[in-house]
Each structure stands twice: as structure tokens, then as C-alpha cells.
Design a protein around this nucleic acid. Structure first.
Length: 482
RNA sequence: GGCCCCUUGGUCAAGAGGUUAAGACACCGCCCUUUCACGGCGGAGACACGAGUUCGAUUCUCGUAGGGGUCACCA
């Protein structure tokens, strides 16, 4: 089994594209097959500098490895279409010789006017097949004079064409709705319609996987395969990934690309996991998968045929899920830049690692880290009203009292670790006859200066260290008028 | 507009004639708890509509409606 991902380098890699690549990869890999990358750069006008690198980088970051493709090579190269021009020319000529295609010298003006009148008449077809009726001498004369021309495929005018698609089943269309499509453009480049057939055949692609926008042109490709006498591949068309009920997710509408999501704090593996589930569902109810696990579980009949809306909230949850499943070192590796950013790189390695431990279960997207932990580096200016907490049974008055008690305790504490401090404070509360929270809440507040913090009073104290903790406690006491 | 395709809670989705119509996100409540998270338990919430086939349709058929795609020298 051989599948291919055939993007055109016209911009950045968007989510729908990436999902197609993923499925193509998974379909091949779950069957022990090969996954091929082919660049479809046959539109010179839409070519975007750097777009090819975006494709390579994205595949690299996600771990989707191709067995054959640009740079890595393979037995069926080159894998960039602009380097295969001679092939398309040769095969187009073959079709002309067989009478399956013909030269067309029509000008753009003539084509435009045909299109206009067809639109007015409500005709399905635009082209009137004018050049098909040119006699041989005239064609040759035009060719000799270098009159610009294209090569068109001659479509049958009656009958129907049926093809089978793995997800959509049998689809039949009437041949008379098919236009004599252009195979070779006047600039010598093939159209997608032609190049994909030639290349898929030459590269021995067994399963053609692509978006379902190609569903309606697939009969044309089959006609091409038959004209050549080539074997028709298995088709697997995929429903689109939507932004909402009405519009597809696309870079054009400013929707997030893979790269954008990574910059927003999403892990490549979580993105991959999430999009795998947009249009495919596993046999059981497990939803968290690594790429390797997907390779094992993937199966064709889990593919669905209706569009799926991209839900950033679920991706966010899933990202958190992947974060929680990392071991601390792995998490620290990805979180460290964000911790440094939030603390201006003012903390020690040891402190940062402890912070990582505190925030791992509280992080869904990496970019939320800096804001959550900046108080470790610098005590923010805070309103003393946050000492008042109904559920903790604290008010301004008892906060001051217990803060002083807490301060005295911390000052004498020998073992400045969270557990030890926590035990000590519990004893203190028992001795004072108050609730644990009546000491801990004011302490947490004084130590952090924020209403909500990752970690409680003693965890923060441990990271801050004795000196800084006492300083902050003192400041809190003075703020409360003590 | 012609042709093709799609339609289960707000979202992702399982189910393919007889089910209390799974599960997940989000939402709500409770529990756990040194705040917040995490975790645990529970709740609310769906078969687009109309015919037909059938003892019985979410499931099959046909219509209707809604949505999408496609009709390029773009892919």
C-alpha cells in the first residue's frame, strides 16, 4: 500500500491539510505501507516563497515521516512536479496520438465569451469543443507558428461514469456534465487534473486520499486512467474540517495554522491527536493517542463522511491531557522557556523545576504559564481585600493576627520544605484553636500577592525560600496595619 | 442554477431494524482540598421533517428542508 500527501506550496500549512497528511500517513502505516510526499507546484502564479519549508517543518515537528519525497529521494522521483514537466508533456502527447485529447488554440477572450454565454443559457458546459474539429493541417500550421495552445481531454458525451469511494460508496455521474478539461497549460505546466493522475500512476500510489472537494472531478480522472489503460487506484475522500457550520477552516480566513497553534502554546502531539479525531473515531472510547498509538489503532471504517467543526476548547482540554501525562522532566523541557519568560529568568534552576511541578496539572496551554507564575519573581501590588475570604473564614483583622503567628513560625522553622511547614502550621492552628485555613489563606495571600495561585502557602514558601518568604510576610503584616 | 455529497445533544462522536441512544469537550451540582487546578461522583442536553417498507424504524427507501462541494490554462 502506498499513499501520498500532495500539497501545493501556496502558503502555510493549515489544519485541514495537516489532517489529510496525517490520515494518508496513518492509512499507509497502519497497513505497513509507504507514505510519499509530493510537491504540487504547477501553479506558477500562486507559488509562495518559503511555503515548501513550512510543509517540511510541519511534518518534521509532528513526526509524520515520509518514506519518499523531496530530498529523501525514492525510486519514483523527482517528487516535485515542476521537475517532471517532460513527463506530462510526453503523456499528454500520447493521449493526443490516441485521439483521447486534442490541441486547443482558443484565446482567453473566446473562452471568456463562451463562458459568459453558457452562463446566460444556464448550460453546464462552457467549452464548445471548437478546436477538436480543426483539421490536421491547421493544427500543424498553428504548432509550427508557435500559436499558444493547451491540450484538452476529450470527454465522452453520453453514458455515465461510476466510481467507488471507501468512505462515500458508489458515486455515479453523467458524462455529459463533463467538460473537455485542460490537461496541459499553455505555459507547458500540467493542470492538477492531469498531473495527479500521471504521478499517482507513475509513483504507484495505491490509495488516493484527499479532500472531498475532489469528489466531483474524480470521474474525470478515471476517464484519464482508462484512456491510458492504467489501473484505477482506491479512492478515499475526506470530509472537510470546518470553522463553523458554514465555512471551512482556511488560512485565507485567518484561521489558525499549525504553526499558529504551536505559538499559542499547543503541543504538536496534542494538535495531531485532536485532528485525528476530527473525522475519524477509534473502536473504543479512548481519546488520548500518541502518533505511534494512532498508527496501531487507525482503521478505515472509523472514517466519517460528514464535516467536523474544529473546536479549540476540546483541543485545549486535550493539550492539558497530554501535558498531565508527561513526566516532570519532559514537561519541564517544554515549560522552561515560559517559566523564564514569566520570571524574567531571575530564578534558579531548582526553583524553576519546582514551579514546573506545581503548574503541570494546572496548565492547559503553555502560554498561560508566564502570567500564572510571575509572582514568584516579584510580589505584585495587591489589594488587602483579598485577605478577606468567606469560605476560609478570614477577615482583615484575623488575617493580621494569624499572619503574625505564621511569620513567627516560619522564622523559627528549621526544615523549610512544604510538607514540614504544612505539618507545623497544622499544629500551630490546633494550638491556637483556629482553622488551618485561617492561617494558610493569609499566608498564601501574603506570599503570592494574588487571589489565585498555583500551589498553596507552604508550597510557595518552599520555592520562595525562607528569606524571601519572611520578607513578603512582613510586608503583608505592614499592609494590614501591623 | 445543474450535478454530486452530507444531516445523532452547543461541539466531536458510537450505534446500522427491537438499546434506559455509548463516550468525550463545554456547562451545572456535589465531594476531595492549604486558594486555584487535578481527581472522584452525579445532572441537564440529541436521532432535521414527512411519507413508505416492517410486527417494530435513529438505523432501509423515497421525498422535503437545511448545509457543503463542484461546475478554471487553481489545486
Amino acid at each position: 500500500m502506498r499513499t501520498r500527501f500532495a500539497p501545493s506550496p501556496t502558503g502555510y500549512m493549515h489544519i485541514g491539510n495537516l489532517r489529510t497528511a496525517l490520515y494518508e500517513y496513518l492509512i499507509a502505516k497502519s497497513n505497513g505501507g509507504k507514505f510519499i510526499l509530493r510537491i504540487e507546484d504547477t501553479d506558477q502564479e500562486r507559488y509562495v516563497e518559503g511555503a515548501m519549508d513550512a510543509i517540511f517543518n510541519t511534518l518534521e515537528m509532528t513526526g509524520i515521516k515520509y518514506d519518499e519525497g523531496p530530498y529523501v529521494g525514492g525510486d519514483y522521483g523527482p517528487y516535485i512536479q515542476s521537475e517532471r514537466l517532460h513527463l506530462y508533456k510526453k503523456y499528454a502527447q500520447e493521449l493526443v496520438d490516441k485521439g483521447e485529447a486534442y490541441y486547443c488554440f482558443c484565446t482567453k477572450e473566446r473562452l471568456d465569451s463562451l463562458k459568459k454565454s453558457a452562463a446566460e443559457l444556464g448550460d453546464a458546459l462552457n467549452y464548445d469543443r471548437h478546436c477538436f474539429y480543426l483539421d490536421k493541417e491547421e493544427v500543424e500550421k498553428n504548432l509550427r507558428n508557435n500559436v499558444p495552445h493547451v491540450i484538452r481531454q476529450k470527454m465522452p458525451t453520453e453514458g455515465t461514469t461510476t466510481f467507488h469511494d471507501v468512505v462515500y460508496g458508489d458515486i455515479t455521474i453523467e458524462n455529459k456534465t463533463l467538460e473537455d478539461q485542460v490537461l496541459l497549460k499553455s505555459d507547458g505546466y500540467p493542470t492538477y487534473n492531469f498531473a495527479n493522475v500521471v504521478d499517482d500512476h507513475l509513483m504507484k500510489i495505491t490509495h488516493v486520499v484527499r479532500g472531498n472537494e475532489y469528489l466531483s472531478s474524480t470521474p474525470k480522472y478515471n476517464l484519464l486512467y482508462s484512456a491510458f489503460g492504467w489501473e484505477i487506484p482506491t479512492y478515499i475522500h475526506l470530509p472537510p474540517v470546518m470553522k463553523d457550520q458554514h465555512t471551512k477552516l482556511s488560512k485565507r480566513h485567518g484561521d489558525a495554522s499549525f504553526q499558529d497553534l504551536v505559538e499559542r502554546g499547543y503541543l504538536p502531539k496534542a494538535i495531531l491527536n485532536y485532528i485525528a479525531l476530527l473525522g475519524w473515531s477509534p473502536k473504543d472510547t479512548e481519546e488520548i493517542f500518541t502518533l505511534e498509538e494512532l498508527e496501531k489503532s487507525f482503521n478505515l471504517d472509523g472514517l466519517s463522511k460528514s464535516p467536523a467543526i474544529f473546536d479549540i476548547e476540546k483541543l485545549t482540554w486535550m493539550n492539558g491531557e497530554h501535558i498531565r501525562r508527561m513526566d516532570l522532566d519532559e514537561f519541564y523541557d517544554v515549560a522552561r522557556p515560559y517559566i523564564e519568560k514569566g520570571t524574567n529568568s531571575s530564578l534558579t534552576e531548582e526553583q524553576m523545576k519546582k514551579i514546573a511541578g506545581l503548574i503541570q496539572k494546572r496548565t492547559e496551554v503553555l502560554t498561560e504559564i508566564p502570567g500564572k507564575i510571575s509572582f514568584f519573581a516579584e510580589l505584585p501590588d495587591y489589594d488587602i481585600q483579598i485577605y478577606v475570604h468567606k469560605k476560609m473564614k478570614t477577615d482583615l483583622e484575623n488575617s493580621l493576627t494569624y499572619l503574625k503567628e505564621g511569620f513567627d513560625y516560619l522564622k523559627e522553622a528549621q526544615d523549610f520544605t512544604s510538607n514540614s511547614l504544612y505539618e507545623g502550621i497544622k499544629e500551630l492552628a490546633a494550638k491556637l484553636g483556629c482553622k488551618n485555613s485561617q492561617i494558610l489563606w493569609p499566608m498564601r495571600t501574603a506570599l503570592s500577592g494574588v487571589e489565585v495561585s498555583p500551589g498553596g502557602a507552604t508550597e510557595i514558601a518552599e520555592i520562595l525560600g525562607k528569606e524571601e518568604s519572611l520578607k513578603r510576610m512582613e510586608y503583608g503584616i505592614s499592609k494590614l496595619g501591623g
